[in-house]
Design a protein around this nucleic acid. Sequence first.
DNA 1: CTGTTTATCAATAAATTATGGAGAAAATGT
DNA 2: ACATTTTCTCCATAATTTATTGATAAACAG
Lengths: 226, 226
Amino acid sequence: MADEHLLVVEDEKKIADVLSDYLTQAGFTVSLIDNGEQAVVKIKASAPALVLLDIMLPGLDGISVCREVRKFSDVPIIMLTARIEEVDRLLGLEIGADDYICKPFSPREVVARVKAVLRRARPGEKPQRLVAGPIILDEGIHQVTVDGATLDLTPSEFGLFHVLMTFPNRVFSRSELLDKVQGYRYDGYDRTIDSHIKNLRKKIAQRLPDREVIQTIYGVGYRFTI
Amino acid sequence: MADEHLLVVEDEKKIADVLSDYLTQAGFTVSLIDNGEQAVVKIKASAPALVLLDIMLPGLDGISVCREVRKFSDVPIIMLTARIEEVDRLLGLEIGADDYICKPFSPREVVARVKAVLRRARPGEKPQRLVAGPIILDEGIHQVTVDGATLDLTPSEFGLFHVLMTFPNRVFSRSELLDKVQGYRYDGYDRTIDSHIKNLRKKIAQRLPDREVIQTIYGVGYRFTI
DNA sequence: CTGTTTATCAATAAATTATGGAGAAAATGT
DNA sequence: ACATTTTCTCCATAATTTATTGATAAACAG
């Protein structure tokens, strides 16, 4: 098995360690996170192959984490729940997870499910690349290239550009962009987006000096155009 | 956003007020109820578009309210809970809520979730494009095109044209147009609209020289005709 | 013809966005 | 755990865009 990187989000250290042990032994590389906020950040930054996500977490709960993540990534997510009845309810909430495992689970089962989900996720992969003229945004490797040259973007810049590129021509308001990029459990200053846009524009302009790829719609927001 | 009516069931006045403020600002109409019994009656009577329901209530608690309501209505319900652990418990109870938000929550999050639930609940979204002959107004990309050529409109011009185009042939008075476009100001000078109409006409005329798309009804106002 | 309504113009006011930079926060390396 | 680096957020202010207004001319209705 190729060396694939998994992220386990679990606050009970004992469970986390057991999972980590078995998964490592199965040939995966495993990172542990014990809270929701960090999980979202980590997923955005490290783009794991799969996430094992406990529902009960301190701070941002698993359901919210899942929702957040789905705003910027299709990474496979397996939810860990305390009781079987929960699964039905979860399915109704459309949170976008790929599988559910109930506690108490056998490590063997977890490994099997992880492999199953990975197998399922691999072939018909969703468009992990957004292409617009000379610009290519590759979700998988978390990288943007212009005419083949890589742009060195920060996480926020990447997230922002990703949202904009998913809907070319569509205008996004600042608060929409804030929501999509950082999640809505956040009270931020609209104008922070301006700063990121400024830096993003500067980096893009290094490679595409003549074109204004990100346009300002006065009184409304920003949009991306090829 | 269409003017939609929400019901907030919350006994802590401070929280209720904050919620009301933010939701109102987001364009919703909000009613407040501070106890469960009245909530059920109110929901039956006023058929709100969505209910925000605190779990801890004097008298009939939120869970019971939710169950009651589900006997006669599918109105979307978002539960407000004090602790994340409660959500796990609630998920098992199958009370029929559409989403859960834990305190303390940011108003931004609440607004976002309300919109998300409404979006999900809404069957077919409204057409986001208005078409009239060669003229297309696209709300999503905030753009008006005439025969494929883009018009560069200011926010007021766009808003004005949007209102006019929603009801072709209907005459709008100046104060009506002022209200629809800016919503908040009373002290506005009717004749301001004239200026905007002038500029709008000029921009449209560049692409449609022969037709008078915006007509003046002397002593009444303006109307849009194909 | 006369009073009223609308059109146009351009100066000024108001609102929005751009930008640079400082300090905070977060991530990273040791 | 600590120091270093990177990134994020926010603020002040400059630059830009849009809105408003009043004056005046033109069009309209009776």
